[in-house]
Computed example of a mutant assay.
Amino acid sequence: MPSPAMPASPEPAAPAAAASAARLPQHEPLAFQTRNGMVESVHYGSLVATAPGGRTLLSAGEPGAAFYPRSSLKPLQSVAMVRAGLDLPADLLALTAASHSGAARHLDGASRILELHGLTPAALENSTDLPYGVREREEWLRGGGKPTQLAQNCSGKHAAMAATCVINGWPVEGYLDPSHPLQKLVAETVTELTGEEPAGVSTDGCGTPLFALSLAGMARAFGRLAAAELSDGMSDGGAAAPQKPEAAVAHSMRRHPDMVAGVGRDVTELMRLLPGALAKDGFEGIQLVGLPDGRAVAVKISDGGDRARMPVTVRALEALGVDTSALAGIATAAVLGGGRPVGLLQAADFSSLSPTDAVL
Rank of each mutant, 00 (worst) to 15 (best):
S3H: 11
P4C: 07
M6P: 13
P7T: 11
P7F: 07
E11R: 10
P12F: 02
A13Q: 12
P15Q: 03
A17W: 05
S20F: 15
A21V: 04
R23Q: 06
L24S: 05
H27T: 14
H27W: 14
H27Q: 05
E28L: 13
A31W: 07
T34W: 10
V39R: 12
L47F: 15
A49W: 03
T50K: 01
T56M: 07
S59I: 04
A60T: 10
G61C: 07
G64L: 00
A66F: 14
A66K: 08
Y68H: 14
Y68R: 14
P69A: 04
P69K: 05
S72M: 02
L73T: 09
L73K: 10
K74Y: 06
K74Q: 10
Q77R: 12
V79T: 12
V82D: 13
L88D: 09
A90T: 04
A90D: 11
A94K: 12
T96W: 03
A103L: 06
R105N: 11
R105D: 06
S111H: 02
R112C: 02
L114N: 00
E115Q: 00
L116S: 01
G118C: 07
A123I: 00
L124Q: 05
N126S: 11
V134F: 12
E136C: 09
R137Y: 00
E138S: 12
E138D: 14
E139F: 00
W140Y: 14
G144R: 03
P147R: 06
A151H: 09
Q152D: 02
Q152Y: 11
C165D: 05
G174H: 06
Y175F: 08
L176M: 08
P178I: 00
S179A: 07
S179I: 00
L182H: 14
L185Q: 11
A187Q: 03
V190Q: 05
L193M: 04
E196I: 07
P198C: 12
V201A: 13
V201N: 10
S202A: 15
T208E: 00
L213D: 08
L213N: 03
L215C: 02
L215P: 13
A226R: 01
A228E: 04
S231G: 15
S231E: 13
G233R: 14
M234E: 14
G237F: 03
K244G: 02
K244F: 13
K244S: 15
P245E: 03
V249M: 13
R254I: 01
M259S: 11
V260R: 01
A261D: 03
V263K: 02
R265N: 04
E269F: 01
E269A: 05
L274Q: 07
P275L: 03
L278E: 04
L278M: 01
G282R: 01
G304M: 09
G304K: 14
D306I: 13
A308V: 08
R309P: 06
M310A: 05
M310Y: 15
P311S: 06
R315K: 13
A316L: 05
A319D: 00
L320I: 04
G321Y: 06
D323L: 09
I330L: 02
V335E: 01
P341C: 01
L344Y: 02
L345G: 04
Q346M: 08
D349V: 11
D349C: 12
S352R: 15
P355N: 08
D357G: 13
